[in-house]
């Protein structure tokens, strides 16, 4: 049991001296939500991640279900919530199904990516 304790202690020590944890960002919420059907045509998308992200480290591609790109025109950080980025589109989206492909580059240059769709109803 002494050996087990020493081993666990060594691991904990390595965890302690290595610095703070930096979990890679995952998408936690979106507006319009993942898979949602909305009636109001959005001109902005809001993506909230599990960790604070910089707007320059995020790439978001919005397209129609036929694969035609829609935008975005601008990606900015939410001034209130550092975990949220705002995607401003060129025009309010007309009715249809849209796909959002996102990727986030973390501090260690790893890139996490994902995608989802939502619908704008008539």
């Amino acid at each position: 049991m002494r050996t087990i304790s020493l081993t666990i202690a060594a691991v904990l020590l390595c965890l302690t001296i290595s610095g703070h944890a930096e979990a890679h960002a995952r998408l936690k919420a979106a507006i319009p939500a993942v898979g949602a059907i909305v009636s109001d045509a959005p001109q902005q998308l809001r993506l909230t991640f599990s960790e604070p992200v910089e707007a320059g480290a995020v790439v978001v591609d919005v397209g129609t279900s036929e694969g035609m790109p829609v935008g975005p025109t601008r990606i900015t950080a939410d001034p209130v919530d550092p975990r949220t980025i705002i995607v401003t589109l060129p025009t309010p989206l007309p009715p249809g199904t849209y796909t959002v492909q996102w990727s986030v580059r973390s501090e260690d240059d790893a890139r996490v990516k994902g995608g989802y769709s939502f619908q704008v109803s008539r």
Binding site: C14, L15, G19, D108
Partner: peptide, 12 residues
């Protein structure tokens, strides 16, 4: 996940 816990040491 050591890549998240220790990205600059054991996680790379």
């Amino acid at each position: 996940f050591l890549g998240d816990l220790m990205p600059k040491t054991l996680g790379k």
